[in-house]
Amino acid sequence: MKNITISDVAKHANVSKSTVSQFLNKRYDYMSEKTRKKIEATIKELNYQPNIVARSLKQKSTFTVGVVVANILHTFSTHIIRAIEDFFHKHDFHIIVCNADDQPEKERKYIEMLRAKQVDGIIIFPTGGNIDLYEQMKQDEFPIVFMDRTIEHIEIETVMLDNHLAAQLAVNQFVQNGYNRIAIVTTSIIRNISPRVERIQGYKDALNSHGIEVNEAYIKTVDADQISLALTELFQCKTPPQAILAGNDIVLIEVLKFMKENNKQIPEDVAVIGIDEVPFASFYTPPITTVAQPTTEMAQQAVERLLQQMKKEEGQEQFPLIQRFAPTLIVRSSCL
């Protein structure tokens, strides 16, 4: 069966090839409504499928971007990916999502694969374990934006949360409600993953601002499968914590499971606040106080930064190298 070409569409619709091309690229400014409908009807009648490869060669773009997420299990990650896809769809770009599982080796393979496929740019939630690869992309002037995490000494545009403020909001809420023995639990800080490190520092600074001494025994940074053990250790302390700040959504889930399994009541036995809003927070019993990230705004900023790099136009808006977004405290019943 013969492949239908743009010439066939133009001939059948009795318009020029350039007019069909303008239609396909959604440039309708100099085209009547009648012509638009005629071309649209012809494309349907002939079952014409645009040649993506030819379009890519002509415009020197694959209209595809990569998103390499450190751990797709985080609610924050899935929300960001969803929003990124929405924004790129408006610009007629497709996205390829890769999950690195917080493993630098997987991250490297995915980045190399995406570049081999000639994607136009990549948004990366960096594991922090491929410094040489990040530097090479920067040296190649390959469009790249970091999301959620920053890497020291590498000047790559980054969009992330004000993690210090996120922890401060939680600690302030605990203190305001009369708690002073406050613990924080995060997943591992191997490779100095910036959100976790910054949240711990924000927690310490907030305690100090309230005149509360930092108890190192109340700070736990472990792999996800060790969180239950870390919580057991916390409650075996001579003076166990009255409140727990869960450093992310995965930690929060493990904290809630631990409370159920050990018959501890929230907030009667221990108050809980989680950083990252989760779908069940509002209807869990009791509803969970969280510190939410503005995922839609962060995703839009990352997309705009990457598009600007890909276009390489003069006189573009100058973004700050690292842009931090303010979190929001959502007060519910787990901290009274």
Score class of each variant (00 low, 15 high):
residue 216 E to H: 05
residue 239 T to Q: 09
residue 215 N to D: 15
residue 220 K to I: 11
residue 199 R to W: 06
residue 235 F to G: 12
residue 239 T to S: 14
residue 207 L to H: 13
residue 199 R to S: 10
residue 227 I to Q: 01
residue 235 F to L: 13
residue 233 E to H: 02
residue 218 Y to H: 15
residue 230 A to M: 08
residue 210 H to S: 07
residue 205 D to M: 10
residue 227 I to P: 00
residue 207 L to C: 10
residue 214 V to F: 08
residue 218 Y to P: 07
residue 209 S to H: 04
residue 232 T to L: 06
residue 205 D to G: 02
residue 198 E to C: 01
residue 205 D to E: 14
residue 195 P to K: 04
residue 209 S to A: 14
residue 229 L to M: 09
residue 234 L to K: 06
residue 216 E to P: 00
residue 215 N to A: 15
residue 230 A to C: 12
residue 228 S to L: 15
residue 227 I to H: 02
residue 228 S to H: 12
residue 216 E to W: 00
residue 211 G to E: 07
residue 222 V to K: 11
residue 205 D to I: 02
residue 200 I to Q: 09
residue 213 E to L: 05
residue 226 Q to R: 09
residue 215 N to Y: 09
residue 237 C to L: 15
residue 202 G to D: 05
residue 229 L to T: 14
residue 221 T to I: 00
residue 201 Q to F: 02
residue 237 C to K: 11
residue 211 G to Q: 07
residue 212 I to S: 04
residue 201 Q to P: 00
residue 232 T to K: 10
residue 209 S to V: 00
residue 223 D to C: 05
residue 216 E to N: 10
residue 208 N to R: 06
residue 227 I to D: 01
residue 229 L to R: 05
residue 228 S to I: 12
residue 234 L to N: 09
residue 196 R to I: 04
residue 221 T to L: 01
residue 239 T to L: 11
residue 238 K to M: 12
residue 209 S to N: 07
residue 233 E to V: 02
residue 199 R to C: 11
residue 193 I to V: 13
residue 224 A to S: 07
residue 198 E to K: 14
residue 234 L to G: 08
residue 198 E to D: 10
residue 200 I to D: 03
residue 203 Y to T: 10
residue 237 C to I: 15
residue 236 Q to K: 14
residue 223 D to S: 14
residue 224 A to Q: 08
residue 194 S to C: 02
residue 201 Q to S: 09
residue 239 T to W: 00
residue 201 Q to V: 05
residue 239 T to R: 12
residue 207 L to Q: 08
residue 213 E to W: 00
residue 194 S to M: 04
residue 202 G to H: 06
residue 224 A to P: 00
residue 208 N to H: 13
residue 196 R to E: 01
residue 223 D to P: 00
residue 203 Y to H: 03
residue 206 A to K: 04
residue 222 V to D: 07
residue 228 S to V: 13
residue 239 T to V: 13
residue 220 K to D: 05
residue 200 I to S: 04
residue 218 Y to G: 07
residue 210 H to I: 08
residue 195 P to G: 11
residue 204 K to N: 03
residue 222 V to Y: 05
residue 208 N to Q: 06
residue 212 I to T: 01
residue 202 G to I: 13
residue 218 Y to Q: 06
residue 201 Q to T: 10
residue 213 E to K: 09
residue 217 A to D: 14
residue 196 R to M: 08
residue 205 D to W: 01
residue 217 A to H: 14
residue 235 F to A: 12
residue 233 E to P: 01
residue 199 R to P: 07
residue 221 T to A: 14
residue 199 R to M: 12
residue 209 S to T: 08
residue 233 E to C: 03
residue 223 D to T: 13
residue 237 C to S: 15
residue 206 A to E: 09
residue 212 I to E: 02
residue 220 K to T: 05
residue 233 E to N: 08
residue 218 Y to S: 07
residue 199 R to H: 06
residue 213 E to P: 01
residue 231 L to E: 02
residue 227 I to W: 02
residue 228 S to N: 14
residue 198 E to S: 08
